[in-house]
């Protein structure tokens, strides 16, 4: 480890390829950056030397192959998922995780007493967890024209993790899943059998099909009817389905307390 005197801040463009390129550069030049930050997050820093990393796809690809070969595919997965968390300091944890990883190989995931190993694993876990949760909580609505639309506001950048699942499941439908927080969306076409991520402004709302309201009403009726009154337990309900996800649901949790059947 040379050059520790000359402390550097790596700035990358915010993409995953960008992060991999930055990491590649650090390992290649045998530098330990004091920070690695996305361009959008960067605030002017007087004390350290700034290094702007230009994203290069070949380098990123090469580096991820190296991780797979010398550490493990699981580690590569953890890194990608931790990246999707967009958490503060995530890049540096990844750097240190890899630093140990290149030394000890795939055993790095057993180093649970090391702070940075745990941090990366925890972040990755949180991202996977939210993605799994949303696979259930996303609600599609039929828009005029027979396409389906869903809005979400996830904590993490989970769209790309969910897309393959929904492609598999709704392969014969055209659909859009809209991340309103990040103003992007996954769009899938049944004819092309492919999905891609596009920019989509927050205000976008499609016009719904004629029968959509009827189906939604049926669902609400079902949801209220299946809850057993003398077992009412709103706390467990919130524990599994936190309120932050309620906004884009069709059903209204808590409604059975007002709803009566016959």
């Amino acid at each position: 480890m040379k050059n520790t005197e000359n402390k550097k801040v790596y700035i990358y463009d915010g993409s995953y390829q960008g992060l991999l390129t930055a990491l590649y550069q650090a390992f290649k030049l045998r530098e330990v950056p004091i920070k690695i930050v996305a361009q959008a997050e960067f605030k002017d820093d007087l004390f350290y030397q700034q290094v702007e990393v230009k994203t290069e796809n070949e380098k990123a690809q090469f580096f991820s192959d190296q991780i797979k070969e010398h550490i493990s595919a699981q580690t590569l997965n953890n890194i990608f998922h931790a990246y999707l968390s967009e958490a503060e300091k995530m890049e540096l944890y990844i750097f240190r995780y890899l630093f140990t990883g290149f030394k000890v190989g795939k055993k790095v995931d057993e180093f649970l007493t090391k702070d940075y190993v745990r941090q990366v694993q925890d972040l990755a876990h949180k991202v996977r967890h939210e993605s799994h949760r949303l696979k259930g909580l996303i609600r599609l609505q039929e828009a005029a024209g027979g396409k389906y639309y869903a809005a979400v506001e996830p904590d993490y950048k989970t769209l790309v993790l969910m897309a393959p699942h929904f492609k598999n499941r709704f392969s014969t439908m055209d659909w859009i899943i809209h991340d309103k927080k990040r103003e992007e969306a996954v769009i899938y076409s049944a004819a092309e059998k492919e999905w891609l991520v596009i920019d989509l402004e927050k205000e976008f709302e499609p016009e719904l099909s004629n029968k959509e309201k009827d189906v939604q009403q049926l669902w609400q009726a079902f949801f209220s009817a299946v809850s057993i009154k003398n077992r009412s337990n709103p706390r467990t309900q919130r524990q599994f389905m936190p309120k932050k996800y309620w906004k884009h649901l069709i059903e209204s949790p808590g409604s059975s307390r007002k709803f009566k059947i016959k």
Binding site: G136, L137, N168, F170, S171, I228, S232, P234, Q237, F240
Partner: peptide
């Protein structure tokens, strides 16, 4: 189950879609 030309598939791990007011999950149209 799904093969890409039909509606739907199944996931080995199972997925919950909602939780009723009594805290039980709604996975299936029961």
């Amino acid at each position: 189950r799904g093969d890409g030309s039909s509606l739907g598939n199944t996931k080995a791990a199972g997925i919950c879609h909602s939780w009723t007011d009594d805290g039980r999950c709604v996975s299936l149209l029961k």
